[in-house]
Simulated assay, not measured.
Amino acid sequence: MNAPIRVLVCDDQMLIRTGLVTIIDAQPDLEVVGECGDGQAAVDLAGRLRPDVVVMDVRMPVLDGIGATRLLAGADVAEPVKVLVLTTFNLDEYVYEALRAGASAFLLKDAPPAQLLHGIRTVATGAALLDPEVTRQLVGRYAARIRPAEENSGELPITPRELEVLRLIADGLSNSEIAGTLSISQETVKTFVSRILTKLGLRDRVQAVVYAYRHGLVT
Protein backbone atom coordinates (compact mmCIF):
# COMPACT_ATOMS: atom_id res chain seq x y z
CA MET A 1 0.00 0.00 0.00
CA ASN A 2 1.11 3.55 -0.70
CA ALA A 3 1.85 5.73 2.29
CA PRO A 4 -0.95 8.20 3.08
CA ILE A 5 -0.64 11.80 1.96
CA ARG A 6 0.67 13.81 4.91
CA VAL A 7 -1.31 17.01 5.51
CA LEU A 8 -0.69 20.01 7.75
CA VAL A 9 -3.77 22.15 8.49
CA CYS A 10 -3.34 25.84 9.34
CA ASP A 11 -6.35 28.00 10.25
CA ASP A 12 -6.69 30.40 13.17
CA GLN A 13 -10.37 29.58 13.70
CA MET A 14 -10.43 26.48 15.86
CA LEU A 15 -13.89 25.36 14.79
CA ILE A 16 -12.96 25.47 11.10
CA ARG A 17 -9.59 23.87 11.75
CA THR A 18 -11.18 21.02 13.72
CA GLY A 19 -13.68 20.45 10.92
CA LEU A 20 -10.92 20.32 8.31
CA VAL A 21 -8.88 17.89 10.40
CA THR A 22 -11.90 15.64 10.93
CA ILE A 23 -12.78 15.56 7.23
CA ILE A 24 -9.20 14.89 6.11
CA ASP A 25 -8.34 12.32 8.77
CA ALA A 26 -11.43 10.27 7.93
CA GLN A 27 -9.87 9.38 4.56
CA PRO A 28 -7.76 6.22 4.44
CA ASP A 29 -5.27 7.77 2.01
CA LEU A 30 -4.83 11.03 3.93
CA GLU A 31 -3.23 11.73 7.31
CA VAL A 32 -3.19 14.98 9.28
CA VAL A 33 0.30 15.17 10.76
CA GLY A 34 -0.14 18.54 12.44
CA GLU A 35 -2.36 21.57 12.91
CA CYS A 36 -1.78 25.16 13.92
CA GLY A 37 -3.38 28.58 14.08
CA ASP A 38 -0.90 30.99 12.47
CA GLY A 39 1.40 31.15 9.51
CA GLN A 40 4.67 31.20 11.43
CA ALA A 41 3.66 28.04 13.26
CA ALA A 42 2.87 26.47 9.89
CA VAL A 43 6.35 27.28 8.61
CA ASP A 44 7.97 25.89 11.76
CA LEU A 45 5.87 22.72 11.77
CA ALA A 46 6.37 22.11 8.07
CA GLY A 47 10.13 22.25 8.60
CA ARG A 48 9.90 19.51 11.23
CA LEU A 49 7.07 17.36 9.88
CA ARG A 50 7.68 17.68 6.11
CA PRO A 51 4.02 17.35 5.07
CA ASP A 52 3.11 16.61 1.48
CA VAL A 53 0.46 19.35 1.45
CA VAL A 54 -0.27 22.33 3.68
CA VAL A 55 -3.90 23.48 3.79
CA MET A 56 -3.48 27.20 4.48
CA ASP A 57 -5.88 29.92 5.55
CA VAL A 58 -5.12 33.45 4.37
CA ARG A 59 -5.92 35.87 7.19
CA MET A 60 -4.13 34.78 10.37
CA PRO A 61 -2.14 36.36 13.21
CA VAL A 62 1.68 36.50 13.57
CA LEU A 63 2.24 35.66 9.88
CA ASP A 64 -0.56 35.56 7.33
CA GLY A 65 -1.12 32.76 4.83
CA ILE A 66 0.53 34.65 2.00
CA GLY A 67 3.73 35.25 3.91
CA ALA A 68 3.77 31.65 5.11
CA THR A 69 3.16 30.35 1.59
CA ARG A 70 6.04 32.45 0.28
CA LEU A 71 8.37 30.91 2.89
CA LEU A 72 7.13 27.39 2.18
CA ALA A 73 6.66 27.38 -1.59
CA GLY A 74 8.26 30.50 -3.03
CA ALA A 75 10.62 30.50 -5.98
CA ASP A 76 13.67 30.85 -3.71
CA VAL A 77 12.79 27.91 -1.45
CA ALA A 78 15.22 25.01 -1.86
CA GLU A 79 12.70 22.30 -0.94
CA PRO A 80 9.25 23.82 -1.52
CA VAL A 81 6.17 22.41 0.16
CA LYS A 82 2.91 22.23 -1.77
CA VAL A 83 0.33 24.67 -0.42
CA LEU A 84 -3.43 24.65 -0.95
CA VAL A 85 -4.85 28.04 0.02
CA LEU A 86 -8.40 28.38 1.31
CA THR A 87 -10.12 31.70 0.72
CA THR A 88 -13.49 33.42 0.81
CA PHE A 89 -14.91 35.94 -1.63
CA ASN A 90 -14.58 38.76 0.88
CA LEU A 91 -10.82 38.10 0.93
CA ASP A 92 -10.42 38.26 -2.83
CA GLU A 93 -7.71 40.91 -2.67
CA TYR A 94 -5.37 38.24 -1.32
CA VAL A 95 -5.86 35.62 -4.02
CA TYR A 96 -3.48 37.01 -6.62
CA GLU A 97 -0.74 37.52 -4.05
CA ALA A 98 -1.22 33.98 -2.75
CA LEU A 99 -0.69 32.64 -6.26
CA ARG A 100 2.43 34.72 -6.75
CA ALA A 101 3.70 33.50 -3.39
CA GLY A 102 3.80 29.95 -4.75
CA ALA A 103 0.47 28.36 -3.85
CA SER A 104 -0.34 25.28 -5.91
CA ALA A 105 -4.09 25.63 -5.50
CA PHE A 106 -6.84 27.70 -4.01
CA LEU A 107 -10.38 26.78 -3.10
CA LEU A 108 -13.29 28.52 -1.47
CA LYS A 109 -13.82 27.75 2.22
CA ASP A 110 -17.43 26.81 1.54
CA ALA A 111 -16.42 24.24 -1.09
CA PRO A 112 -17.91 20.76 -0.55
CA PRO A 113 -15.68 18.37 1.44
CA ALA A 114 -15.25 16.18 -1.64
CA GLN A 115 -13.77 19.13 -3.54
CA LEU A 116 -11.32 19.85 -0.74
CA LEU A 117 -10.22 16.21 -0.61
CA HIS A 118 -9.84 16.12 -4.38
CA GLY A 119 -7.77 19.30 -4.16
CA ILE A 120 -5.40 17.82 -1.58
CA ARG A 121 -4.91 14.67 -3.64
CA THR A 122 -4.40 16.67 -6.83
CA VAL A 123 -1.82 18.98 -5.30
CA ALA A 124 0.01 16.04 -3.70
CA THR A 125 0.64 14.55 -7.15
CA GLY A 126 2.44 17.72 -8.22
CA ALA A 127 -0.45 19.11 -10.24
CA ALA A 128 -2.10 22.47 -9.67
CA LEU A 129 -5.75 23.14 -8.97
CA LEU A 130 -7.65 26.31 -9.79
CA ASP A 131 -11.27 26.72 -8.86
CA PRO A 132 -12.67 28.00 -12.19
CA GLU A 133 -15.24 30.24 -10.54
CA VAL A 134 -12.64 31.82 -8.28
CA THR A 135 -10.29 32.30 -11.20
CA ARG A 136 -12.90 34.08 -13.29
CA GLN A 137 -14.34 36.28 -10.56
CA LEU A 138 -11.32 37.03 -8.41
CA VAL A 139 -8.10 36.92 -10.41
CA GLY A 140 -9.80 38.50 -13.39
CA ARG A 141 -10.95 41.40 -11.26
CA TYR A 142 -7.33 42.43 -10.76
CA ALA A 143 -6.21 42.20 -14.37
CA ALA A 144 -6.44 45.96 -14.85
CA ARG A 145 -4.38 46.62 -11.72
CA ILE A 146 -1.73 44.05 -12.60
CA ARG A 147 -1.30 44.85 -16.29
CA PRO A 148 -0.03 48.46 -16.22
CA ALA A 149 2.90 47.64 -13.95
CA GLU A 150 3.98 44.53 -15.76
CA GLU A 151 2.96 44.93 -19.36
CA ASN A 152 4.24 42.26 -21.72
CA SER A 153 7.31 43.26 -23.69
CA GLY A 154 8.92 41.33 -26.47
CA GLU A 155 7.66 38.38 -28.47
CA LEU A 156 6.30 35.38 -26.57
CA PRO A 157 8.11 32.07 -27.21
CA ILE A 158 4.85 30.20 -27.81
CA THR A 159 2.74 29.57 -30.88
CA PRO A 160 -0.59 31.34 -31.51
CA ARG A 161 -2.43 28.11 -30.63
CA GLU A 162 -0.50 27.77 -27.39
CA LEU A 163 -1.31 31.38 -26.59
CA GLU A 164 -4.98 30.60 -27.15
CA VAL A 165 -4.74 27.71 -24.70
CA LEU A 166 -2.88 29.87 -22.18
CA ARG A 167 -5.66 32.46 -22.28
CA LEU A 168 -8.26 29.77 -21.68
CA ILE A 169 -6.25 28.48 -18.72
CA ALA A 170 -6.21 32.02 -17.34
CA ASP A 171 -9.98 32.17 -17.77
CA GLY A 172 -10.21 29.22 -15.39
CA LEU A 173 -11.16 26.51 -17.88
CA SER A 174 -10.28 22.90 -17.14
CA ASN A 175 -8.62 20.65 -19.72
CA SER A 176 -11.99 19.17 -20.68
CA GLU A 177 -13.52 22.63 -21.08
CA ILE A 178 -10.58 23.79 -23.21
CA ALA A 179 -10.92 20.66 -25.34
CA GLY A 180 -14.60 21.41 -25.90
CA THR A 181 -13.97 25.06 -26.68
CA LEU A 182 -11.26 24.33 -29.23
CA SER A 183 -12.78 21.07 -30.53
CA ILE A 184 -9.65 19.08 -29.76
CA SER A 185 -8.96 16.07 -27.53
CA GLN A 186 -8.03 16.34 -23.86
CA GLU A 187 -4.73 14.61 -24.63
CA THR A 188 -3.94 17.35 -27.14
CA VAL A 189 -4.77 19.95 -24.49
CA LYS A 190 -2.42 18.24 -22.04
CA THR A 191 0.32 18.39 -24.67
CA PHE A 192 -0.28 22.10 -25.24
CA VAL A 193 -0.26 22.81 -21.49
CA SER A 194 3.01 20.90 -21.04
CA ARG A 195 4.64 22.82 -23.90
CA ILE A 196 3.44 26.16 -22.54
CA LEU A 197 4.84 25.47 -19.08
CA THR A 198 8.17 24.30 -20.50
CA LYS A 199 8.61 27.20 -22.93
CA LEU A 200 7.70 29.84 -20.33
CA GLY A 201 9.64 28.18 -17.51
CA LEU A 202 6.53 27.80 -15.36
CA ARG A 203 5.92 25.20 -12.66
CA ASP A 204 2.20 24.62 -13.06
CA ARG A 205 -1.17 26.00 -14.17
CA VAL A 206 -1.30 28.41 -11.26
CA GLN A 207 1.89 30.08 -12.41
CA ALA A 208 0.49 30.10 -15.94
CA VAL A 209 -2.51 32.12 -14.75
CA VAL A 210 -0.27 34.57 -12.91
CA TYR A 211 1.95 34.88 -16.00
CA ALA A 212 -1.00 35.60 -18.25
CA TYR A 213 -2.28 38.40 -16.04
CA ARG A 214 1.14 39.86 -15.34
CA HIS A 215 1.85 40.09 -19.07
CA GLY A 216 -1.51 41.50 -20.10
CA LEU A 217 -2.55 38.47 -22.12
CA VAL A 218 -6.09 38.36 -20.74
CA THR A 219 -8.70 40.95 -21.56
Score class of each variant (00 low, 15 high):
Tyr96Ile: 06
Ile66Lys: 00
Leu71Tyr: 02
Glu97His: 08
Ala68Leu: 02
Thr87Val: 12
Asn90Glu: 15
Ala103Met: 07
Val85Tyr: 04
Leu86Asp: 09
Lys109Gln: 13
Ala75Thr: 14
Phe89Leu: 14
Pro80Met: 07
Leu108Tyr: 08
Ala98Phe: 05
Val83Tyr: 07
Gln115Pro: 02
Gly65Leu: 02
Ala73Glu: 05
Ser104Phe: 12
Val123Ile: 14
Lys109Trp: 11
Leu108Pro: 02
Tyr96Val: 08
Phe106Ser: 01
Thr69Gly: 00
Val123Ala: 10
Ala114Leu: 13
Thr69His: 05
Ile120Asn: 13
Ala124Asp: 11
Val123Pro: 04
Tyr94Leu: 04
Val85Ser: 11
Glu93Gln: 12
Ala111Thr: 12
Gly119Lys: 02
Ala111Asp: 10
Ala111Ser: 15
Ala111Ile: 13
Leu91Ser: 14
Ala103Lys: 01
Gly74Cys: 08
Ala124Thr: 13
Lys82His: 14
Tyr94Asn: 03
Lys82Leu: 10
Val77Phe: 13
Ala101Arg: 01
Tyr94Asp: 09
Thr88Ala: 15
Lys82Val: 10
Val85Lys: 05
Glu97Arg: 06
Ala114His: 15
Arg121Thr: 10
Ala103His: 00
Tyr96His: 05
Ala68Gly: 09
Ala103Thr: 04
Phe106Leu: 07
Ala98Cys: 06
Gln115Cys: 05
Val81His: 09
Leu99Asp: 05
Leu116Phe: 11
Lys109Gly: 06
Asn90Asp: 15
Tyr94Gly: 02
Glu93Cys: 00
Val83Met: 08
Glu79His: 13
Ile120Arg: 09
Pro113Ile: 07
Leu91Gln: 15
Ala111Leu: 08
Lys82Asn: 14
Ala114Tyr: 11
Arg121Ser: 11
Ala103Asn: 07
Gly65Phe: 06
Ala101Glu: 06
Leu72Cys: 03
Gly67Trp: 01
Leu86Pro: 09
Asp92Pro: 00
Thr88Trp: 01
Gly119Ile: 09
Leu71Arg: 09
